[in-house]
Simulated scan of single mutants.
Amino acid sequence: MEDKKLLIYDCAKELFREKGFKDTNISEITKKAGMAVGTFYNYYSSKEKLFMDIFLEENSKLKQACFQSLDLEQSPMDVVGQMLKLNVEGTKANPILREWYNRSVFEKLEQVYREDNGIDTVDFLYDNFLELIVLWQKRGKIRNDIDSKMIMMIFAAIINADTHKEEIGLEYFPELLHLMTELIMKSLINCSDS
């Protein structure tokens, strides 16, 4: 049974990479997997649910790769700036993660994610960073009067600004992200470290 689910997953991942979310349908996925459409629904309730599972796995891999390439001995300002830069570059380079920038697609997918995981579970964006934030707080490198999870949501908000770049104005990117990150980090870093 798990072999069929994995086959559906792998075939869908390949098609989503090649064609994108909107241009891939369930019948194509099952045809590529060599099974009936009905078999799909034994494992996934919808194309959105399957895509979100794939997206989250790809997102997690990217975050791990970014995190592992960081020089954690640098200042919090430099580490966060580097992480955000690597994240944006990695997202743009991955066709599945690039769907993040397709607002109409991602709004629908985000709704599926929230329905499955609850409104409060949005820390898939920077879950690897939580331990580092807590460590910085313990060492006095960043403010500890703000909850570490709230700090992670601040970083998520920076990334989310990228999905609204057309509304804000393309001519301001990527300088806007850099400036926002710098201003936020300056407010998070303790006065003794500034």
Rank of each mutant, 00 (worst) to 15 (best):
I54P: 04
M52Q: 06
L15Q: 15
L56K: 04
M52F: 07
K22T: 13
E57K: 12
E48A: 14
D23Y: 11
T30C: 07
M35N: 12
Y41D: 14
E14W: 02
S45L: 15
C11K: 11
S45E: 11
M35E: 13
K47S: 07
K47M: 01
K47N: 07
F40R: 02
K31A: 09
I54Q: 01
E57Y: 05
E48N: 13
M52H: 03
S27T: 12
Y43Q: 05
I29H: 02
D53G: 14
K49A: 12
A12N: 03
V37Y: 09
C11V: 00
A33E: 08
Y41P: 03
K31Y: 13
F55W: 05
K13S: 09
Y44V: 05
K13V: 04
K22I: 15
I29W: 03
F51K: 02
F16I: 01
K49P: 05
Y43F: 13
L56N: 15
S27W: 12
N42F: 09
K13L: 04
I54L: 03
M35R: 07
K49G: 08
Y44N: 05
E57S: 10
D53T: 02
M52S: 10
K49H: 12
A12W: 00
E58T: 03
K19R: 11
G34L: 13
E28M: 11
N25S: 09
Y44W: 11
E48C: 10
K47D: 06
N25F: 10
E58W: 00
L56F: 01
K47P: 07
T39V: 14
T39P: 08
E57P: 11
T30S: 03
F55R: 02
Y44K: 03
N59H: 15
E28R: 07
G34T: 13
K13A: 12
R17E: 15
T24Y: 04
C11T: 05
I26M: 04
M52D: 12
T39W: 10
K19F: 13
K19N: 09
N59E: 14
K47Q: 08
F21H: 01
E48Q: 14
T24W: 07
F51R: 01
I54A: 06
N59R: 14
D53A: 05
L56I: 10
S27R: 14
K47Y: 03
R17I: 07
M35P: 15
I29P: 03
C11W: 05
K31F: 07
A33L: 07
F55Q: 05
I54R: 05
L50Y: 04
K47W: 02
I29D: 06
R17Y: 12
G20Q: 00
K13N: 11
E57A: 10
L56H: 04
L56D: 03
Y44P: 10
